[in-house]
Design a protein around this nucleic acid. Structure first.
Lengths: 329, 329
DNA sequence: GTGATAGTGACAACTATTGTCACAAATAAA
DNA sequence: TTTATTTGTGACAATAGTTGTCACTATCAC
């Protein structure tokens, strides 16, 4: 094997292993340790940030800056990666904000000239818009770390006008429509709740007295199975009945425009049915305590929706409309 | 310069130039053409997809697959790029959909082991949600190409219940809240309009009779200057007055919750004012013909908003509320 | 045909690479 | 303290690789 090829291979190898020693590599590449030492020195000169320690348990390490191996990307692929990263600039708060900025700059910088030209051409012609919020999200990193490390945090949270300290164990964080949310197991409520991250005004990593639960299997993708109705499975029949009693059947007709508006709402995805002509309806179970929310939602749809069930919701709607009318008279 | 280093440099050089010939490189690197020929052959064996043609105007080319040079990324940067690209999976329609999938796979594949571990740990703990729509956007690539190449397209577009063929010259495309939009110069209306891409049901690249305008300076970032009020600048005083006459002053008080809801709306950003206690107000100019839209919007805010001006809007609101109330009685 | 271009082969001169060995220095653990 | 382990350096000779030159081929556009 030629030296050039060995150096390239070596570059990838040392990036794969976090730690290694000279003998190990020598065996792997079938050359003497002296050669490997010389190669490593050369890699260092080429920019790979190597660090070594002598003595037993010593050895080589690649520092935080890692050289990615040369990856063969098609032009299209490079463009796709660029625009994906470019889209992150809309997020003012991001757990790895600085990293994403520098990464994008590096990526662009090392791009061959004509790919860069193509990117420049497209830069102002395609975008992924995210609403820019005035809200502040200073605790995203802490929440994310806690979710990964299965730790309990004490958060200051404002909800319905009152502020409380809550011990929670985050499941993860997600951004939707410019806002960050954090589903977490709430020790106060004994279940998984979603917290809006801009309403968290303090985070304390010291939450003594609360043992972390084993929520490793719960994540953003499956958390619904562990929340509200999902928890039915594990509960006694009595509890099930209790929860079921709080469910009501929802049914509302939608015009074509109403359908389009509903498609924008995440919660409605499972309830939405669409006819060939574009109109449709919402149908399914909904928690009884959410009627105020639904009333507000359907009011917003104006004449594009007609609620038929449940009667409580129709009542709530009427009350709401009357109240508003009174305000304007 | 050692051969290894020259090969690495050569790799980057041939990726930067799309076309080149042997003599050129020989001069650049200060070696003989024979050496360059041997080097190029070796690069080929290392995986760089080279293609050559003999004869005058012949030379070397790098084919579509380009080897990106080794880029030094920190772990954080690699993670950021990964998640940015990962977020694209929410978009079922994308001008470079396949590319983004294969790019992500390659990127992940070549990642050193421990970075990959970290990514796996985070994969289900952080996400950028985009509403999944049932709408279809088959023409994104054509629209984008047309925007870049300054071409006129004939599109079939449905608006307010009627379908029409329109000659348009796209300015670009953008995704917002799961839907794709295309601002374009509409030759029918003689101005820039925004089209929802799922309502475009046909695209014809042959639009004879319409000469492309020079819209190279108009792009997603500055298109507002060329649309509606922006166009005032270039118009006669008479026309200005005409347009101004259609503007009305908007003023509405908002509760704290109302403020939060408004922050989600892109159009309201410039009108929104927030007080220290979280409440706020919307104030500013708005097109008179949009009153129906505003009525709908403020109905959706329920009691979180109180509209004071313009009187037309208050009237529209009352009518709307009464109509809805009647429907439920 | 002419000139530009890639491509090959051979060879000698030159250069780089490699393994070996000897030894230094650091350090953790016995 | 001693020992084992590890990186690190220097020297040197044998070997292997690299380079430039030159001669020659093939293709192709003009």
């Amino acid at each position: 094997m030629s030296k050039s090829k060995r150096l390239l291979d070596l570059m990838m190898t040392v990036n794969r292993k976090r730690k290694f020693n000279v003998r190990e590599l020598a065996d792997e590449f079938g050359v003497s340790t002296r050669t490997i030492l010389r190669d490593l020195q050369e890699l260092g000169e080429l920019g790979v940030p190597l660090y070594s320690e002598v003595g037993p348990h010593g050895g080589y390490q690649v520092l935080n800056e890692r050289i990615l191996p040369p990856i063969a990307f098609t032009e299209e692929e490079a463009v796709a990666i660029f625009f994906a990263s470019h889209a992150l600039r809309h997020y003012e708060y991001l757990p790895f904000k600085e990293a994403s900025v520098t990464a994008l700059r590096k990526f662009y910088h090392y791009m061959p000239g004509d790919v860069r030209d193509r990117i420049d051409e497209m830069k102002h012609r395609i975008d992924f818009v995210t609403p820019a919020r005035q809200a502040e999200f200073p605790y995203l990193s802490v929440l994310l770390e806690a979710a990964i490390d299965q730790k309990v945090l004490l958060i200051g949270y404002e909800s319905r006008g009152e502020r409380r300290l809550r011990p929670v164990q985050p499941v993860g964080i997600y951004a939707s429509n410019g806002l960050w949310y954090c589903p977490a197991y709430c020790f106060l409520r004994g279940g998984i709740r979603v917290f809006r991250c801009d309403r968290i005004d303090a985070v304390e990593e010291e939450a003594s007295g609360y043992e972390p639960l084993d929520l490793r299997r719960v994540h953003l993708g499956n958390r619904h199975e562990y929340t509200a109705e999902g928890q039915l499975r594990g509960q006694s029949d009595g509890a099930k009945a209790q929860i079921s009693r709080n469910k009501v059947r929802l049914y509302a007709e939608l015009t074509a425009e109403g359908v389009q508006a509903c498609e924008a709402e995440l919660w409605s995805a499972s309830l939405l049915h669409i006819r060939a002509d574009g109109t449709g309806w919402l149908e399914g179970e909904a928690p009884a305590q959410d009627m105020r929310f639904f009333a507000r939602f359907f009011t917003g749809l104006g004449n594009e929706a007609m609620v038929h069930e449940p009667p409580e919701l129709v009542e709530e709607l009427k009350t709401m409309l009357e109240e508003m009318l009174r305000k304007y008279s």
